[in-house]
Structure formats: C-alpha cells, structure tokens
Amino acid sequence: MNFTLKIWRQKDAKSHGAFETYKVSDISPDTSFLEMMDILNNNLIHEGKEPVAFDHDCREGICGMCSLHINGHAHGPEQAVTTCQIYMRKFRDGQTIVIEPWRSAAFPVIKDLVVDRGAYDKILQAGGFVSVRTNSVPDGNAIPIPKKDADESMDAAACVGCGACAATCKNGSAMLFVAARVSSLAKLPQGRVEGARRAKAMVAKMDELGFGNCTNTGACQAECPKSISIAHIARLNREFLSAKFED
C-alpha cells in the first residue's frame, strides 16, 4: 500500500511548526501505524533527514504512551484502540493521512508529534495516597467488594492516561481522566477513605494547570481508547460537590 503523509514538524517548543508531506510506499496492510512511522523514519535517516519524533512504548495498547491525532481522530479512525493498535489495512491505498500532535494548552508540543503530558502526572500526584495496610499481603477475600463496584472500578482503572480526552475535548478539559482516577478509587473500600479529599485536590490541580471546563459533549468517551464512560464524570461531580458541601 502507498500513502501520502502530512505530518506536523516542529523543531522544539519555542519554534513555529508546519506540515510537511512525505510519501511511503510498499507498506504491508498488516503493518501497524507506528511500524509505518518507523519505516518512514528509516527512509528519512537514509536520506540524511531528521526523523519524525513521536511517542511510543509498549505497542500493545496498555502503556498510554502513544498519542497522535490521525485524520481528525485521537488514536486514529478506529474506536476503542490506541494508535499502536491501528493497522494500515484500516486506511485506503493511496490515502492522504494527516498526523498532528495533541492540541491543548496544557499539553505543549516538545518536538514534532511529541507533547508534554506532565500535567496529567501532576494531577495524579495531587490525588495523594490511598489507605492500605502495608506489611504482608492481605487475604484477597478479607474485604468483600460487590462485583458491580469492582467492575466499575476496573472499568475506570483501564484509563492509560494517554491524554486523548483532553486532546479531543473542544474545551481542553481533562475531566474524563480525572473522573476515571477518582472513580476507580472511590468505588473501592480502600480508596473510599480519602475520596472527598482526593476529588477536591485533583479538581483543584486540574483547574490550576489550565485545563478547560467540561460541557458534557461526550467527545472524550467517543475517542477514548479504553471507552471510559462519562458516567465516571457524573460520579466525579457527585464526589466533588458532596465534598464541597461538607466543608
């Protein structure tokens, strides 16, 4: 398969970027999107040009490191997968593919397609500790947790923190990420203890870092590679508001 790639190139955070067009040819339909990028970079290196910088790590959809806004979609045109799980057979032969970095004021571009997602780490740090007994491993059945709660907690915990939610949101809001973190712990007895403090601290940090306000469009859940539901945002709203009214 052959493709025309329009890729955002930017030397560093301070430079102005622009799109550059590249051609890749003889790509196997079973090549993953990131492997296609590797092939492009290999070609560029052989031509003596600067390869395209992009984030990646596990390449199996669990680390949250890959990003990329591909033809208008965070993580490409397929639902519920990360960029590393997209295969070139999902595109048409000869198609032009526009590849952009995440666009959000809180995620500044570092180089080409790499953005600084450190803001999410700062929100996580603001979440603080979880009350658990240390020392020996406790018995798995010592604290009974209803299946429904455990499932909801796990659904939220599937968040890989990739930033697609804030990158997709027209308001640059990180609510789905914060909600997933708050919700996954709030549904478990161990995390419940600090529930109120955590919700307030993480929301305060999110606001401080310049993320926008959620307007319930639902674009985040549509583009989330882990299909995290905005029902978790409703839970965050409950957690936060009840914590505030108790102050």
Partner: peptide, 28 residues
C-alpha cells in the same frame, strides 16, 4: 466558561476535525 475553555484549547488548532461518534451538534 467559554473564555476559560478557549484558553485551555490553546492557540494552535487541529487542521483536520471530525464529528465524534454520538456527539450532538447542539452540545458543541
């Protein structure tokens, strides 16, 4: 809220945008 959101979105916008699945026009 709109001013906050405009700032949060940043100056650089996407060249290609699409309508996300299940997102109503009114909501945006």
């Amino acid at each position: 809220l709109t001013v906050d959101n405009y700032r949060a979105r940043g100056k650089q916008r996407y060249a290609v945008t699409v309508k996300e699945k299940g997102v109503e026009w009114a909501s945006k």
